[in-house]
Amino acid sequence: MPIFHHPFPALGGRAEIVLAAADEAEAKRLAQLGIDEVLRIEHKYSRYRADSLIGRINAQAGGEPVELDDETLALLRFADTLHLDSEGLFDPTSGVLRRAWDFKQPRLPRPDELAPLLALIGWGRVEREGKTLRLPQAGMELDFGGFGKEYAADRAATALKAAGVRHGHVNLAGDIRVLGPKPDGQPWQIGIQHPRQPGKLIASLPLRQGGLATSGDYERYFELDGQRYCHVLNPRTGWPVRFWRSVSVVAPLTVAAGALSSLAMLKEADGLMLLQRSGLPFLAIDPDGALLRDAIH
């Protein structure tokens, strides 16, 4: 069975669905099912769109509660688990910090810029009653940045599997979910980007199924006086984390892999123990560029 590639723009980056099908027309039809699912989730949960559900919730901060559907409620419960297990390091209300950190220019925020933003962060303050949610203070924001893209990858995979696709993978700007091996049974070689040399790979993993997610300090950052400031921000201090260059985790579901790689980044040096005790294969690159890995060859 021939393999077909379908690139498309999504979630602020390059996405691609690769699958094996009888012919090009069939491949295009099947890939579209996956693409539709990714775009559906992007439209619903993107914080960059005013007409998304997240946009509506953020617009009504300090105002009326918003009624939520089952899918969103399930994602919020997942966020609860991550918030609880990270002892608050993972916080879906921490998106407001990007108002102080604009990674397009190398400028450190002043304490009086960060303080009011930190005051708007607090997942525990979000009011949830029954099926509604309300951000109690105007200016508070919700965003599913830590797991939204990975959830979209898994949902696209489910849609493709339900349509009968057995060989392929969904790649959303580095977060990948493999549906099944190549038609000849061989695994897909999934590359992990080199954190300091753009365009180059630091490792290549053979995967037959499951998800691979990577968090790194190279996706959005600036450097000032020899110090790198990346887009992964600690919700307690308001400052970027400063340890791992990159953390990749393999798990049966991309959303789980993404949650763990994000948590490891947030926990900085303590993230290593988290990864080792997770029972999942991982690859982490420490501040000196050394590769630490477990069950990944």
Partner: peptide, 10 residues
């Protein structure tokens, strides 16, 4: 393991 719990939740 935390990994197990996250996976179960996922």
């Amino acid at each position: 393991s935390l990994g197990g719990r996250i996976l179960a939740a996922a």
